[in-house]
């Protein structure tokens, strides 16, 4: 999965811009999409890279072992400084599929994760909070 095929959002707060690449893999995507749509003051969809932005890969949903290479490729495509946000119990630990034969038990086994967002699914506010947290601001 090429990184530039992901939907990308600009998350702008005072002084700091995040380039959020959304990798929506399961039902958590409903919540992330809701977050993007409900906060036009914070999110703006973009199609070209943003200069000097912190790149964020938002892994929201169930990562299966078969899909893992695509997630890794997406992360590689965003460069070594990409911040990975693990959104929801599936991405965090496997969650409901903690004992499954086919689900990766936490994306952090393969990628360094900057922020874990708990929830099944986490509400949209949790994503906003995690991103604010990532840029070092309290909401």
């Amino acid at each position: 999965m090429a990184a530039d095929s992901l939907r990308t959002w600009r998350f702008r707060t005072t002084g700091v811009v995040l380039e959020v690449h959304d990798l929506p893999l399961a039902c958590c995507a409903v919540e992330t999409t809701s977050a993007f749509a409900s906060r036009p003051d914070l999110f703006e969809e973009v199609t070209v890279p943003i200069a000097n932005a912190i790149r964020v890969l938002l892994v929201s949903g169930t990562v299966t072992d078969r899909l893992l290479p695509a997630v890794m490729e997406a992360a590689r495509g965003l460069g070594p400084d990409v911040k990975v946000v693990s959104f929801g119990s599936c991405a965090n630990t496997g969650g409901p599929y903690w004992d499954s034969y086919s689900v990766t038990k936490g994306i952090d086994q393969f990628l360094p994760v900057a922020r874990y967002v708990p929830g099944c699914a986490p509400p949209p506010e949790a994503l906003v909070s995690a991103l604010l947290d990532l840029v070092g601001q309290s909401s």
């Binding site: 496997g94 903690w98 004992d99 499954s100 034969y101 086919s102 038990k105």
Partner: peptide, 11 residues
């Protein structure tokens, strides 16, 4: 994995 004798490693 769908056989009953397949042990789930996590469990």
């Amino acid at each position: 994995p769908l056989r009953k004798d397949f042990a789930l490693a996590a469990r």
